[in-house]
Amino acid sequence: MTAAAVGLSHSPLIGKNDPAPDVLARVDEAVENARAFVRDFDPELVVLYAPDHYNGFFYKEMPPFCLATEAHAVGDFGSASGPLSVDTEAAKRLAQGVLDRGVDLTVSARMTVDHGFAQPLEVLFGGIDRVPVVPVFVNGVAAPLGPVSRIRALGTAVGQAAAALDKRVLFIGSGGLSHDPPVPVLEGAPPRVADALIEGRPPTPEQRARGEERVVQAGRDYVAGSTTMIPLNPEWDNLLLDHLEKGELAAFDSWTVEWMGKEGGGSAHEVRTWIAAFASLAAAGPYGMASRFYEPIPAWIAGFAVATARTGDLR
């Protein structure tokens, strides 16, 4: 197997609450570099690790991670809706390979995904149905959360199982870095909100529109400084990127759930997708980081990063 990885932040506020033009230009350049990297690698299969924002997974059943053999995007925040081009045969082989390696993987035969999955596919490939993909949900918001070591174990097992496919495989981690958006929590929620978080009843178009507008307004408030959300943390974000660049993945095993939330905000656990993707890449052999971009962008409520890497010596 030839392997590569892309880490890419996502935000529902892109295009709705954008930063200054010079910041946007730097992001666009980094994203275009990632697109060129992907085109040059020309993947035969994409394994996409991404979170959910209570659109597909709810407290009625909330696995720490789940692999899909079929998936459909809801189209939230203007992202694409419809079926992803899931490689079902590859997904089944990866699932069995992960289970054979002692990682208790959940499998979905009909996964619902949101912008966390759709955005990277749209950004890097121009659509959600342009490349064979195996979606892997990684819980990053719904407490309780398990140790990061299990996410690294998941990524390693997926990477080892992918080696048996004998394909050019691109691993993508979608989300993060530090950010603390207004995501609902179950503990202390009013009965109506708690019921929605548990049962997963889909919102009406009007309810979804109101919810999305609240997030957009939260981004504006964040920029204005009139908010209780935890500030972005460039130091923490770059520590994460340093470990990834140096291949120091075992260092994440000491990162506790409480510490990550304190340092990076309530949704900082989306970086678990990056850790999984780079653990999968490392399972294919030593790797080098080809590009690394980072910018704290309050307008998107995100420490925004783009990174590319592949196995082998890049010098």
Rank of each mutant, 00 (worst) to 15 (best):
S254P: 08
T256Y: 04
N233C: 12
P203V: 07
P203L: 11
P231N: 07
M260R: 14
D221V: 00
P286A: 02
W259P: 00
A196S: 05
D221T: 00
R272Q: 04
F252C: 09
N238S: 06
M260H: 04
T227P: 07
A277W: 09
E187Q: 14
V216K: 07
F278S: 04
D195A: 15
M260V: 15
P205G: 13
A250G: 11
S280V: 06
L244M: 11
G285C: 12
E199C: 10
S291W: 02
N233W: 09
A283N: 05
V271P: 02
E235F: 13
G285L: 12
G288C: 13
D253K: 13
P190V: 08
E187C: 04
L197R: 02
R220K: 12
D195T: 12
L249Q: 10
P203A: 10
S226W: 01
A276V: 09
H269Y: 09
H243W: 15
R208I: 01
K262W: 10
A279N: 10
E213F: 11
N238A: 02
A194G: 08
F278M: 14
A290N: 14
W236Y: 14
A276I: 05
P203I: 01
E235Q: 11
V271W: 07
R201V: 15
D221L: 00
P191H: 08
A290M: 10
P190D: 09
L240Y: 11
P203E: 03
E245T: 15
D221Y: 03
T227Y: 01
V216P: 05
A251R: 15
G266Q: 11
G265L: 04
M229A: 15
L239Y: 15
A189K: 12
Y222T: 02
A209G: 07
L239K: 15
D221I: 03
L232P: 06
F293R: 13
V193H: 02
G188M: 03
A194T: 10
N238K: 08
A218L: 07
D253E: 14
H269C: 01
M289C: 08
G265T: 14
S254K: 13
P190Y: 08
T204M: 10
E245G: 11
A209E: 14
R220D: 00
I198S: 03
E235Y: 13
T273W: 06
